[in-house]
């Protein structure tokens, strides 16, 4: 279970950020973060994965507190940033080996996962090339492989579908569903409401650093269509 309690993060020199945000996700949940640019989606995500230390509040995953035991917390998550930052002078393979060695995972299991992911994402030849020659989509696929390799219990994806080709998009959606059915918690931010409607069972809408909607997809869709609700809650002023 992922539990986020009252976290706040205000950027210095501005009043942007997130305030008093609470959220609970259970095993098997697929949750989408939606909201306008600057609504606080990425800030929340970066706080959960440990890039931005937040000002107050706490984050726990299956009983492990992020601040008390960051190494163990981080070994359980897989995160894909909105803009992948990788070592340009490495080959994809060298990068994957580096990342794999940071997580203490069984070598046989890792190789099995790796072979599967490389095949599914058609990355078997590209993995031997230098990262500096990759396109944005290729970098994203490499990040996806690197985060799924160690079987994380919480998968966090920031705008995962931007720049992915249709095949990779389909693979990612299938992978999200099948991993969720195995008990993994998945959380991602997106602008594409249609995909969210099809894939997710939970939805969080951000507006100006606050959570304005936090409900199951079923409940939300009973009231109105996603599009209407989104327009409704984000245009109140």
């Amino acid at each position: 279970m992922l539990s986020i309690k009252n976290i706040s993060k205000i950027y210095k020199g501005s009043n942007k950020g997130i305030s008093n945000l609470s959220l609970e996700l259970h095993q098997g949940d697929i949750c989408a973060f939606i909201g306008a640019n600057g609504a606080g989606k990425t800030t929340t995500i970066k706080s959960i994965v440990g890039i931005h230390p937040f000002d107050k509040g706490e984050v726990t995953l299956f009983g492990t507190n992020l601040q008390a035991n960051p190494a163990h917390f981080k070994s359980m998550i897989g995160y894909s940033p909105d803009t992948p930052a990788l070592y340009p002078n490495m080959t994809g393979k060298a990068y994957l080996e580096l990342i794999a060695s940071l997580y203490e995972i069984d070598e046989g299991e890792r190789n099995k996962n790796l072979a599967y992911l490389l095949k599914e994402l058609t990355f078997e030849t590209a993995v031997h090339e230098l990262i500096s020659s990759y396109s944005h989509g290729m970098k994203q696929r490499l990040v996806l492989i690197s985060l799924l390799m160690h079987n994380p219990k919480l998968i966090i994806l920031d705008e995962p579908f931007v720049g992915l080709d249709p095949n990779a998009t389909r693979f990612l959606i299938d992978e999200m569903k099948s991993r969720a059915s195995e008990g993994v918690i998945i959380l991602y931010s997106t602008h594409v409401l249609e995909v969210a409607e099809k894939v997710c069972n939970k939805l969080v809408i951000f507006h100006k650093g606050e959570v304005v909607v936090n409900d199951t997809m079923e409940h939300i869709l009973q009231k109105a269509s996603l599009d209407e609700i989104f327009r409704d809650v984000t245009s109140d002023d």
Partner: peptide, 14 residues
């Protein structure tokens, strides 16, 4: 500045 550091810190590295 390139974001590599932030990404490394999402890994189990102190």
């Amino acid at each position: 500045n390139s974001g590599v550091q932030g990404f490394i810190f999402t890994r189990p590295v102190s």
